[in-house]
Amino acid sequence: MNGSPWNPVLYKVSSKSIENADLLTFELDPVGDEAIDPIAPGQFNMLYAFGIGEIPISVSSILPSYPTLVHTIQDVGRVSKSLIQLPVGDIIGVRGPFGPEWPVAQVKSKDVLLIAGGVGLCPLRPVIEYILDHREQFGEVNVLFGTRHPDNIIYHRDIISWQSDPSINFQITVDHAFPSWRGNVGVVTHLIDKAKFYPENTISFLCGPEVMMRFGIYACLDAGISEDMVYLSMERNMKCAIGLCGHCQVGPYFTCKDGAVFPYTMMKPYLNISEL
């Protein structure tokens, strides 16, 4: 990491694109010569809205044009609302990158099963990009995406591209649909029957609300995928991002420092503990 992890680097909002009613994707470019280190799939940055506060946001795409950053932000609180309302050209602070990567570069020749729920697709999009850029290094690639309603679908251009790409099995399902919806309806775990993989040679990454991930993990294990081949991205109230403040503690781990991407085997004892 360049410099102190406490010092935000100044970035300006270069572009904004609306994903759905409460979700925007930002491109950020450094204001001066200083930039944060290159970010990897699964890592996150702390984005600072000056005078309001700071929030952790996963990288949602990795452009070849370093040091441009891409983050997708959901309007869920005071800081995110403030960030979303910033006009193009305004300045924010960025600290990072933090946390381990999805182990995508270390699983060559394996089949891949990605399960995303709602905005959980954002941290997995760089994984899909990496796989498609290195497609020959992987076996079967499946992406199962569940969301509440067709109106909540994000990254439309990417999804159309992925659905028409024969080298990747991309499936969407929604919980509720309008009458003209001709796609899948049902929970995302239902889609596992449509995935093609050899369980003994498969790695699975899950990202989404924790309840969804729990049921997604059960589906992976039921399908025969080994526990140590399942990874998930945990969300907690991260403040310092370097494992000092303790806000994001889960058992003996700090989500900001030890995660947000964890092997399931590390999180297994804690996933069913209420309000942990």
Partner: peptide, 15 residues
């Protein structure tokens, strides 16, 4: 089981 999970509105949480 699937219907019960759907009733929980599992995508409503933050990530």
């Amino acid at each position: 089981e699937d219907t019960r999970v759907q009733l929980m509105d599992i995508y409503s949480g933050r990530v």
